[in-house]
């Protein structure tokens, strides 16, 4: 039997909500099935989907279902008190049996091959990590998860993960029992051939980034989420990039990076990690606004908007054209 996967996954998928579960206080978990009954496209740990909640409201959530069962997709959504109300909409409006449009899975947080892994999750940041644990376990890698949260009842999937993998590998640190994650203890002694994957609120990731400056360059991979949004990049539209030095203009498609589009037309760009980690592909922005998706620039540099990492970052929503010093 041969399985032929579609060359390019459809950009938009109609789904039906199979069930809405509540794995922890304030967390809703949606289980989605394809409206036409077929399987979802293949996806890899770290991927997310867009939920098209209303015409104005699109939110990104990480997938936390098993990657080998493509009949359903699962996301976990924390209710947050935010004015734009993405999570409130999910919690209040979505019910089993309802319809929901989503994007095909995309991945800005891929699990890079390594001998050992250290996973760090803060609160709902556990979601993209879950498929990573399963992948690491299936490949027989050495790994540990530190999962911090306010209290056990707010920590989605905590018990399930502990049961599945054992308390040796899954360290649940509930603040009301044992305080916050002790990052000095966890990250103070870098290990060889170990990658660090962290997902959680900005404050936690800032501290993790600081500790990981003492790790080998490129060891840390993060996904940051804002109040209501697993901050995995809003703009999914294609855009144009004018290469000021080369004198050409390119179109960067949804499934392409600026780096790839530039290389496709034979323009040389210095790159190394191609994952927004090392800073090698830093490129000056002459005009236009970037949506920064890298872990190399500081927040101050991202806000200043003078440079971008073209291996991952894109044009910001509403900016149809970037002019770059390339």
């Amino acid at each position: 039997m041969t399985i032929t996967a579609p060359i390019q996954a459809p950009a938009i998928i109609d789904t039906v909500i199979d069930a809405v579960e509540h794995p922890a206080d304030g967390v809703a978990s949606l289980i989605l099935r394809r409206a036409d009954g077929s399987d979802f496209p293949q996806w890899a740990p770290g991927s997310h989907i867009d939920l098209y909640l209303t015409d104005e409201l699109t939110r990104q959530y990480s997938l936390c279902s098993p990657t080998d069962d493509l009949s359903t997709l699962r996301v976990g959504v924390l209710r947050t008190p935010d004015s734009r109300g993405g999570s409130a909409w999910v919690h209040d409006q979505l019910r089993a049996g309802g319809e929901l449009r989503i994007s095909a899975p995309r991945n800005n947080f891929p699990l890079v091959d390594s001998r050992k892994y250290l996973f760090l999750a803060g609160g709902i940041g556990i979601t993209p990590i879950i498929p990573m644990l399963r992948a690491a376990e299936a490949q027989g890698k050495e790994w540990t998860l530190y999962y911090g949260g306010r209290s056990r009842d707010t920590m989605a999937f905590a018990q399930q993960l502990e049961d599945e993998f054992g308390a040796q590998k899954v360290r649940i640190i509930a603040e009301d029992e044992s305080g916050r994650l002790d990052l000095q203890q966890i990250l103070g002694m870098p290990r060889a051939h170990m990658l660090v994957y962290a997902c959680g609120p900005g404050g936690m990731l800032g501290a993790v980034e600081d500790f990981c400056m003492g790790w080998p360059p490129g060891a840390l991979h993060t996904e940051r989420f804002a109040a209501d949004n697993l901050g995995v990049g809003g703009n999914t539209e294609p855009f144009e990039v004018q290469l000021a030095l080369t004198g050409t203009t390119l179109r960067v498609e949804t499934n392409q990076t600026i780096l790839e589009a530039a290389e496709e037309v034979g323009v040389r760009v210095l790159s190394s990690c191609r994952a927004g980690l090392c800073g090698t592909c830093e490129t000056r922005i002459i005009s236009g606004e970037a949506e920064h998706r890298d872990a190399a620039l500081s927040q101050a540099d991202k806000d200043a908007g003078d440079v971008m990492m073209v291996c991952v970052s894109r044009a910001a929503a509403g900016c149809s054209k970037l002019v770059l010093e390339l």
């Binding site: 103070g188 002694m189 003492g214 830093e282 190399a296 500081s298 101050a300 540099d301």
Partner: peptide
């Protein structure tokens, strides 16, 4: 080696990085 290296490296990378060098 770590952990002594780790503290010194953190101090240095915090000061010398693409942002400060730019």
């Amino acid at each position: 080696d770590p952990p002594i290296h780790t503290l010194m490296r953190r101090a240095l990378t915090g000061v010398i990085n693409p942002g400060t060098v730019r």
